[in-house]
Each structure stands twice: as structure tokens, then as C-alpha cells.
């Protein structure tokens, strides 16, 4: 088996693993029955699934002779941003009370997601006072 054949086989394997993760994530997004649980599955699509596809692309172009490592940039970007967007979606779920919200904190009245900061409250009061 030549090096090029080995690279092609490895790229095909990476592609299959990546598409498996993509499919599992999509099925999880459709089948889970709680909004907070549904956040869990598609984050795997973003990191592992697309990561494996990009790895397959890198290995394949390497085996064809034109090495490219640009894909690492997309991979790094996705790995950084996937947790942030998942966190924002979880905050939306808590804000809309779509999930079972945690018990109220001992001192404050509500969670900070549901509260508007004091500076904004002052501005709103000013606006109300002026009008």
C-alpha cells in the first residue's frame, strides 16, 4: 500500500466518523424531549463532527500532494465559539422558563439572567421621570 492510498483510506475513515457524529447530533436534536437536553446533542456536531470532516479534508489534500493546514483555523474558530453559543442558548432557555429553573438564590430575588442591571433601571426611572 502506498502512502497516497493510506492517506485516502484515513481521509475516508475520518469522513465516515464525522458524518456519523453529524447524524447522531441531528437525531438527538429531533428526539430529545426537553429544551435543555436538546442543547446537548448539536454541540457535538459543531466540534467533533465538523472537526473530523475538516481533519479528513486536511489528510486528503495532504495525500494528493498539496498540503493545506488552513482547516485548522476553522477548527480552532469552531472549538472556541461552540461553547459560547451553547451557553447563550441555555441562557435563553432559562430566561424563557422553558426548562426547570434552579431554585431561587438565598439572597437575591431572581437569577441575574432575569434581572436588568441597576444602571438600566436608573435610566428607565429617569426616562419615566422626564416624560
Amino acid at each position: 500500500m502506498t502512502d497516497q492510498d493510506f492517506g485516502t483510506y484515513a481521509a475516508a475513515l475520518f469522513l465516515l466518523i464525522g458524518s456519523g457524529f453529524v447524524f447522531v447530533g441531528a437525531v438527538g436534536l429531533l428526539k430529545f424531549n426537553d429544551p435543555m437536553t436538546r442543547v446537548h446533542a448539536p454541540t457535538k456536531v459543531g466540534t467533533v463532527g465538523i472537526g473530523m470532516l475538516l481533519l479528513g479534508s486536511m489528510v486528503y489534500s495532504n495525500s494528493l500532494g498539496s498540503t493545506s493546514i488552513h482547516e485548522l483555523l476553522i477548527m480552532a474558530f469552531l472549538f472556541v465559539t461552540a461553547p459560547i453559543s451553547a451557553h447563550f442558548i441555555a441562557k435563553v432557555n432559562i430566561h424563557r422558563r422553558a426548562c426547570e429553573t434552579p431554585p431561587s438564590p438565598p439572597r437575591d430575588e431572581t437569577w441575574s439572567t432575569l434581572n436588568s442591571p441597576e444602571a438600566d433601571q436608573k435610566n428607565e426611572n429617569l426616562k419615566v421621570g422626564q416624560s
Binding site: 481521509a11 469522513l15 436534536l29 429544551p35 436538546r38 442543547v39 448539536p42 479534508s57 432557555n93
Partner: peptide, 27 residues
């Protein structure tokens, strides 16, 4: 999607799947 969080999540997944489609097209 019963809640708006689900809809945002589905849109995010669709964007990521489109990204995968473009990558596979490139391969």
C-alpha cells in the same frame, strides 16, 4: 420547536451542517 431556544438551536445546527456540506464539496 415549541420554544424559541429550540428554534435558535436548530438554526445554529443548520448553519453548521451547511459548513460541513461546503467542506465535503471542497473535498
Amino acid at each position: 420547536g415549541p420554544t424559541s431556544g429550540d428554534r435558535i438551536l436548530a438554526l445554529d445546527t443548520m448553519v453548521i451542517n451547511a459548513l460541513g456540506l461546503v467542506v465535503v464539496l471542497g473535498i
